[in-house]
């Protein structure tokens, strides 16, 4: 019997019959997630930088009927304070105010909007930090958005990632954003690291790829990074990622 045949047999032979999951809990959490997605879907992220935003958005965390939290929330949780930014959000999305929540300020970048140098037609691929609010998680207050900036300054958010538990300034890597094939253009892989990283290296298929990186203008400990789409195909999942400091020491 070859190793492959043995592997196949072993994978099947070790199946546990009668594995049961708590379907009541699954459905309860699923309903909460569905509600959260629906609310996020009515949020909008089209906004003009420097202009007074007039969009009416939903506060996911403040939605009266919103449950306190999702038991096992998805890695990409999007809930800016006073807003609900969709992930992803289409440029053409028209914000539709829900029936009851009060109007709240629009999603707004915190600090400098970072130009990645990547161009999508005439748009710049940009990254920016936004405020978020995850119910029951006071340690999470920021998320990182990948968006596009049009020549007229209009920002369109494609993907927003944030921690869903713990502390968003915890040293180390946080959520990584991958292209979800839902934007009009591919979104280069991106994320942030907290600590004195001077170099960030991803591994994919045995190949190492250096990320571009810069600091968040508000907190220099937050290192924002992204991968050149010509070196790492958007959507390709990393097998690993490490950060090194100025002396080459792994963080």
């Amino acid at each position: 019997m070859s190793e492959l045949d043995r592997l196949r047999d072993a994978m099947r032979a070790t199946e546990r019959r009668g594995a049961t999951l708590d379907l009541v809990a699954v459905m309860r959490a699923g309903r909460r997630l569905r509600t959260r997605r629906r609310l996020a879907g009515v949020g909008a992220a089209t906004m003009a930088t420097g202009l007074a935003a007039t969009l009416v958005l939903v506060a996911v965390g403040a939605w009266p009927s919103d449950p306190p939290r999702v038991d096992r929330p998805p890695p990409v949780a999007v809930a800016p304070p006073g807003t609900a930014a969709a992930s992803p959000v289409q440029r053409s999305a028209t914000p539709t105010p829900p029936p009851t929540p009060p109007p709240t300020p629009a999603l707004k970048p915190m600090g400098v909007v970072i130009d990645s140098g990547v161009r999508n037609g005439t748009d710049q691929r940009v990254y920016y930090v936004v405020g978020v609010s995850v119910p029951g998680e006071p340690g999470v207050s920021i998320g990182l958005a990948a968006g596009r900036r049009a020549p007229d300054g209009t920002l369109t958010t494609d993907i927003l990632v944030n921690d869903v538990q713990g502390v968003d300034r915890r040293p180390g890597f946080h959520q990584i954003g991958y292209d979800e094939r839902s934007s009009a253009v591919p979104v280069p892989t991106f994320g942030y690291f907290v600590g004195p990283a001077k170099r960030i290296i991803g591994t994919v298929g045995g190949r190492q790829v250096d990320a571009r990186l810069t600091f968040w203008s508000v907190d220099k400990q937050v290192v924002i990074f992204w991968f050149d789409p010509t070196e790492l195909t958007p959507g390709d999942r990393l097998d690993g990622i490490i950060a090194r400091d100025s002396s080459g020491r792994r963080l």
Partner: peptide, 11 residues
């Protein structure tokens, strides 16, 4: 598995 089923049910 539970997380996968939660997301499946949500969709």
């Amino acid at each position: 598995a539970q997380t996968a089923l939660v997301r499946t049910y949500a969709s």
